[in-house]
Structures are given as C-alpha cells and as structure tokens.
Design a protein around this nucleic acid. Structure first.
Length: 556
RNA sequence: CGGGGCGUAGCGCAGUCUGGCUAGCGCACCUGCCUUGGGAGCAGGGGGUCGGAGGUUCGAAUCCUCUCGCCCCGACCA
C-alpha cells in the first residue's frame, strides 16, 4: 500500500479530548476518529489492526471446535422478557419500537438469542457439545463512555457460547476456552492474567476475567506472586497485615466531639488499625451493621454479595436504629444484624460506646459482640494471601476477556431442553465467553509505546514493514524503493511505502507514530554505497545491508 | 445520575473578567521558489453560523436566560 493513497490522517498535536495514552496515540496516528461520545470510526489502519486480531481469535476458536455464525443486532423484547433481563437491565439497554409498536432492543450481549437458537436446534444429548461464536457489534448505553475505545457504546465483541449435557462437559468447554484465550492474548503480544471474577448480572456461579495490566484500566486485581492466587479486587480474599496485640482492660473512654476514626485515633494516640469501623446500611430486610478494621475500607460489592442491595443509613436513621448519633456507634450490645470482617476475630479494639462522646477500649469479638464473618474489606497491596501467607500485589488492569459458567439460567428460562439417553427432558448446560478486540488493541498500545508513538506487536501491526524512501526526487531512491516494494509484496509481505514528497523528518516522525515494527530506510547516501537500513521500531537499532539481502531478511 | 472543566478555522489555543472598528495566533491546507537523514525556510492565498436559541444594548465571541454537545472524577457497568 502506498502511503500517499491511504487515509492516514496523522496529527502533530495531542487532541484536547484525549487523556488515555492509547486514545491519544490512536487519534494522532490516524487509526480512529470519534463520531460522538462512545462512538468511534475505525480508519484504514485501525480496521486492519482489528481484523488481524479477529483473524487470530477465529483461528483459536476454530481450533477448539467453535463454529462461527452471525446473529441479529436487533432483538425482539419477548426473548429478553423471558429471561427477566428486559427488566433486570436498566438504562444500559438501548430500546426502541418497530412500526407496529412492538418492543425491540439492541443486543448488548447474546445469551438470549443464542439460547433461543439452541432451543430450536438442539434436541438430543447426541447433538452436544456445541460451541457457537460470532464477532459482532454490541450496543450498550454506557453511563459513562471513556478512555477512547476502551469503553464505548458500540463495540465489536467475539462472543461464544457452549452447550453441554453435564457439568463435567461444561468444565471441559470452559477449560478449552480458557486455554484458547491464553493463546489469543499471547499471540496478540499482551501481558495478561486470568483472575477469578464476580459473575454479576450474567448469572452462573463461576467466572474468570482476562486482565491486561495498564494504568488506563478500570479494574484492579489482587495477585499473589508465590502461589498464583489472582482475583478481581471485587472478590479478592486477603488478610490485612496483623496488628499488635493490645492487653487492655475493657473500659469506656470519654472522647468529646471525636467522631471519625482519624479524630479518635489522634486523640487517643493509637493507630487506626486498633479501631473497629462500624457502618450502618439499610437493606430491604432491615438495617445491617458492617464492621471493618479502622485502617481498612469497606468494599460495597463484597457486602452486596452477602446482604444484597443496600444503601448507607442517613444520620437520623443511625440515631433511630442504634440509639446514638453517628460517630459513637459500635457493635457492643447491639441487636441489629452484624457482618464483620474476619480480621476482627482476633485482637482487642476500640470502638464507639453507643453513648454520646464515649468510646470503648478493649472490645473483643465473640465476648463483646457476635457477628457473621465475611471478607468485606478492600484488598490492598501488601495484604496477606489467604492461600499461602505471602504478600499480595494489587494492580490496575484492562478487562480484555471473560468467561462464565452459566449453568441452566438461560436454557431453563427459554426452554432450551434436550432428551438424555433415558429419554428424560433436561435443560442444556451453558457457558458464555467474550473478548473485546478493540480492548486488545488499546491494551497493546498501552503496554507497547514510547514517547514517539505506538510499537505494535508484530502479530497485530497494520503492516509488516514500512519503506521510507527519504528523497522522492532522487531517481536512485525511487528505483530502489519501488523494486523493494514490489519484491516484498510478491513474497506476501504486507508493506506500506511512504511515497509522499515529504522531508525525511516528517516521514520518520509519522513512521514512529504509526508504529509498524520494522522500517526500511532508503537514503541517498547509503543507497550509493548499495545499502539500505533496516530499523527496529522497538529497539531503534538499525542494520545496514545490501538491498538484496534486505529483501531476504524481511521476508523471514 | 452527582461533582468539576470545556465548546472560537481540520488540530492546538488567545480574546470573554472590564461589550466597541474588518475576530486573532501557531500548525495543517492551496500556489510558487527553495530544501531533502528527525515534524525546514521565504513569499502569496483559501477557510469562521465564535456550539444553538432567545434576551439586554446604539453595538454581543464577551452580559443574562434556556438549551445542546464533549472531556475528567464519582455512582453504575452484561
């Protein structure tokens, strides 16, 4: 491809709206343009990258027996109503009506439609296992699109679905997908981990996420370097580092006007880890008192998994329910349901005395209060791994893929049933598996760039090599570059030639920005010595070799 | 949805507080000359509903009201 003929609108300056590195570089290097919030167009270079990623995904999906199909983007409401997600999913679903006033929606995922298909076409245990996948557009009315193509309202997804007769068979498809996903992300040149995750609205019991470490990510994962434990912080188990054991006699202390942990901690000259933080929340089934250690944060999602939907209590509610104003509440003597973090099981603590302007020193679990024990604190770097006792690391990550064991949630609701060998009707056991190719591209840039631009992994670069004839008015340069271009193309190399009549500096800047892994530089002087220069975008090392040798070297 | 910021040429910005002549600058773009190993130089040129609507005023990019859009933080997130 000739640069002069291709739409590659590079930008010299950083667009004001972009903040994430991948976003800035994709705009500057002419890969994407934004249409509206969360809506992006892929220009020729961007689309080539996406297609390379898609090709890798297809190969690996086909390799585990996946069959590519294509489903509609526009869905009738009834199917979503049957699984309950028409109501369970709120504003995130784009909804519309057709001309006959029938409710429709735009697909944000395809469990319903895939299961509908399975309900018609899979009838016997002999028909399984099946794995169907597609690479197709999803639409979600995101509350807050952000970071360029990392979180958009319309995006491509590779989604696959497995249909099995038993949990063991599902396990196998789940494992095959996990392995395929490992290969896909490896081939795309990403650093990533697979972590335990919260199935959330997808239903099902088990799920894992594939996470690419990057400061631009929206999630955090806890990782144990020793035993390999890894989980999204939304459910990562950890033990905060232990504190000293205090040997107090239990006693009330006057703490006038000292309400927050910080205030009381300063007042008593005790570090926050000697305190119990008591947080009152309101659920549909009444109030719950959540306890974490004073130096810890309560994790809302972890608590939600234990007690369901809840909201923080208002000041008036605290007083009404616990009989004391906020700031002096504590677990002692309370009759409300208490959920406490396990790190409070041992040791002695200070907490509110349930009496205005008093705290109690020397509180012990079981002796002074009883609770249900659940890990509800936010895991942090340096916390102790519950599996092996080593220190955990917490890293910021981009979610690039996920896999779910769905079980029979969708097949039961949509009557996707089959007959087993005994002639008994049973719901199909399902799994669903997703990858966002745009996130792979963005993560690859986040992980591979320098001050000059993108450094693509070879496997997903838009071209294999870029030829830079530095002086387009020099006949020798033109001849040599055209020869090189032709011969590389003949050998099946995907090559971009910067044939623009631009100065050398412009071509160098653009080439580095665009990030094709190898540059072949044809300068007048070196060419007269019969040499061209092969430069590695990543290492910036270059090699001077005869033209004929260059062709052979690049062809490798 | 809550908080903050911003909309002036393709991109980056100044001008707005304190209203005033023909709305400016850099880059990009077009023409010519020149130049060709890291975003050159000179000369000439094109491009603007100042996000939109309404209002105040002799006069509005600038003041007032409403509205639309975009970004960031948070909530939310199959």
């Amino acid at each position: 491809m000739l640069f002069s003929k291709m739409l590659i609108p590079t930008l010299r300056e950083v667009p004001a709206d972009a903040e994430a590195i991948s976003h800035i570089l994709m705009l500057r290097a002419g890969y994407v343009r934004q249409l509206a919030s969360g809506l992006y167009m892929y220009l020729p270079l961007g689309w080539k990258v996406l297609n390379k990623i898609n090709a890798i995904m297809k190969e690996e999906m086909d390799a585990i027996g996946g069959q590519e199909i294509s489903l509609p983007v526009l869905h009738p409401a009834e199917i979503w109503q049957q699984t309950g997600r028409w109501d369970a999913i709120g504003d995130e679903m784009f909804r519309l009506k057709d001309r006959t006033d029938r409710d429709m929606c735009l697909g944000m995922t395809h469990e319903e439609i895939m299961t509908w298909l399975a309900s018609r076409e899979i009838k016997s245990y002999r028909d399984m296992p099946q794995v169907w996948y597609q690479i197709q557009t999803k639409l979600r009315d995101e509350a807050r699109p952000k970071s360029g193509i990392l979180r958009t309202r319309e995006f491509l997804m590779k989604d696959s679905y497995s249909f099995d007769i038993s949990d063991e068979a599902l396990d196998k498809n789940y494992r095959l997908h996990a392995e395929a996903y490992h290969r896909i992300f490896e081939r795309c040149g990403l650093k990533f981990f697979m972590v335990e995750s919260d199935p959330g609205m997808m239903g099902g019991a088990v799920s894992h996420e594939f996470m690419a470490p990057s400061p631009a990510g929206e999630d955090e994962v806890a990782l144990c370097p020793s035993c390999g434990y890894s989980a999204n912080v939304e459910l990562a188990l950890s033990r905060p580092r232990e504190t000293e054991l205090a040997g107090w006699e239990k006693a009330e202390i006057h703490t006038p006007e000292k309400r927050t942990i910080q205030e009381v901690s300063n007042f008593l000259k005790l570090t926050p880890d000697f305190f119990i933080k008591s947080i009152l929340v309101i659920t549909d089934n009444g109030p719950v008192l959540a306890l974490v250690r004073g130096d810890q944060e309560l994790h809302e999602k972890k608590l939600s998994r234990v007690i369901g939907q809840h909201r923080p209590a208002q000041k008036a509610e605290v007083k009404e329910i616990l009989g004391v104003e906020a700031g002096f509440i504590g677990p002692m003597g309370q009759t409300v349901k208490i959920i406490a973090d396990p790190c409070l099981k041992d040791g002695m603590y200070v907490s509110g005395a349930n009496k205005p302007h008093y705290h109690v020193r020397g509180i012990m679990a079981e002796r002074d209060f009883t609770a249900e024990w659940h890990d509800i604190h936010v895991a942090r770097s340096g916390d102790i791994c519950v599996k092996c006792g080593d220190a955990l690391a917490v890293e910021r990550v981009i979610e690039i893929g996920n896999i779910f064991k769905l079980g029979t949630k969708y097949s039961s609701a949509l009557k996707a049933l089959y007959l087993d060998e005994n002639g008994t009707e049973k719901p199909i056991i399902m799994g669903s598996y997703g990858i966002g190719p745009a996130r792979i591209a963005a993560a690859a840039i986040e992980q591979n760039h320098d001050k000059d631009g993108i450094i693509w992994p070879k496997s997903i670069a838009p071209f294999d090599v870029e030829i830079l004839p530095l002086n387009m008015k020099d006949p020798l340069t033109i001849d040599a570059s055209e020869k090189l271009y032709r011969e590389l193309k003949e050998r099946g190399i995907d090559v971009l030639m910067d044939d623009r009549d631009e100065r050398a500096g412009v071509k160098f800047k653009d080439a580095d920005l665009i990030g094709i892994p190898f540059q072949v530089i044809l300068g007048e002087k070196t060419l007269r010595e019969g040499l061209v220069e092969i430069k590695n975008r990543k290492t910036k090392e270059s090699l001077r070799v005869p033209l004929s040798t260059a062709i052979g070297m690049i062809a490798l």
